[in-house]
Design a protein around this nucleic acid. Sequence first.
DNA 1: ATGTCAAATGAAGATATTCTTCAGAAAAAT
DNA 2: ATTTTTCTGAAGAATATCTTCATTTGACAT
Lengths: 305, 305
Amino acid sequence: MDIRQLQTLVAVADTGSFSGAAAVVNLTPSAVGQQIQALEAELGVTLFDRRKRPRQLNAKGEELLRAARQVVQTMTEARMAISGGRTAGMLNFGAIRTVSMHLVPQAFAEMRDAYPDLSFDLTVGMSERLMSDVAAGRLDAALVAENVGVPASLSWSPVLTEPLVLIAPRAEAWRSDLSLLTDLPFIRYVTEVPLSRQIETELAALSVSPREIVATNTMPSVIGFVQADLGVAIVPKIALLNAGTGTLHTRPFCEGAITRRVGLVQRQVSSRSEVLARLRQAFFKVAQMHGLGAEEMPVVDSTGG
Amino acid sequence: MDIRQLQTLVAVADTGSFSGAAAVVNLTPSAVGQQIQALEAELGVTLFDRRKRPRQLNAKGEELLRAARQVVQTMTEARMAISGGRTAGMLNFGAIRTVSMHLVPQAFAEMRDAYPDLSFDLTVGMSERLMSDVAAGRLDAALVAENVGVPASLSWSPVLTEPLVLIAPRAEAWRSDLSLLTDLPFIRYVTEVPLSRQIETELAALSVSPREIVATNTMPSVIGFVQADLGVAIVPKIALLNAGTGTLHTRPFCEGAITRRVGLVQRQVSSRSEVLARLRQAFFKVAQMHGLGAEEMPVVDSTGG
DNA sequence: ATGTCAAATGAAGATATTCTTCAGAAAAAT
DNA sequence: ATTTTTCTGAAGAATATCTTCATTTGACAT
């Protein structure tokens, strides 16, 4: 089965006639008919209702058509990716809020030299939403948290490992972890993102049930409450890049054992894969500058050009 | 470009050698080499690093390999779907909670006659999660709410339209909609599912801000609170099938204008599509028996067998 | 180094496929 | 009824793909 046959099937479905399709794929109508016949012979079924005159796909034909569209789509993407790839134009990128403020802009800046004709559109959202936007093609890629279900058509690869840190007012620096969490009020971060669930889970695992005094749903306000001497909180280290840490006491939570991984999701087959491989490197570099590096630096394979 | 060429590329990647691949695809090593060369010629690039001896894919080769795997996968599915389809064995199905109790079991019962060798595994969850499970292949299909992002590889088609109804204690039946919502306490349904967001939105659109007295996160408990005379609530009509409505006053919310559509998600290309088309019909039938029918009954195209 | 060996490439010929051309049939449009 | 458009079929040319067999290549062990 040749992909060109699938392409002509798509053309037939789109134009509504064999001869129309012939014009689209630059063949004679006869050749189009033969290709369709070849498909029918190979599958052992008829694809068209040949009694009606505007030839109409039957159920099996529709079935094959859906597959054909998908195959043609991925092969077109793959061809583009292989022959140079789209290294210019708008790259639609998504990121979760914590990394959207410093990490992403700095990584984008790193890219300016290598790809001067590339521009960026950044969408901030929650991991699940960003993931489904990538799957649907509305985004080219996104930086999202780990542990969200990844469809088979997407790939997730780690970019940075954020430690979770315990923050408290300066004056309380002398206390132990346990004392901070049980003797001082706890500022809870309540949203629907995986991060807030993860913090809850980790606390429960340590059998710590802190006295809650304030619950808020934005990271800056969590930090603000701690700075205002109202209690302690657990936040990803990167969130502290925004606020001056002068008035805060910061320490790794659970000796840095509790971390949260953030990675790049993209479609398995994407015409942007070259740019994205480069972007991933840039993220690594910037993450390491902030002491958030993941396990190992990715290698770019530049052979076969 | 022939799909067999992509298949041999996959075989080469899997076995690690041309001759190994030759055995897999039932060809001579020479033919395998020629197929790879044909691919390279068509794309105008080299795919393998030919200096090293266990031939290794280069970057472009890996790119094509990902596309090839995807193409082979979808064509295999499509072939199965076309040649009879998998109408026996375990069908992994997902559903949101409200429909999992009556609608789904009844629809499954409808299927027993047509497909006696088919068995069902039902997973209950939230729409987003179910959707990503379908995309990842862990489920064959699922019944989920509308308005969640649908990846391009999936299709969503409506199955039932649930009206949202206002429920109140019997004694308050004389009140107007507005009076019920503003003069009586409101039992809020707070979860992360789209339904609870939708209810909030609709209330806000009507400029109604009810006095909240209780917030709870399960549908049976919402109904329980109303039955206990604590206030009014807004729930999908289908949720009332569980509880006896004897003690409740029920009326359409906004004259039935506010509805919530539930539909079937499945992969665009699936070897189960025949069974799923039939199942969708069964859902329609059962939904109409409960007065929840969507716009129109789907037509099954049974030609071309 | 050098020989050995499995594996990949290359050339040649047989086979199969896929295209175009042209003629005929069949449905739609005038 | 006639024209027009659209599809099918046969024949032959052009192309592609397979197998066979000889040759070359690179890895590995001696």
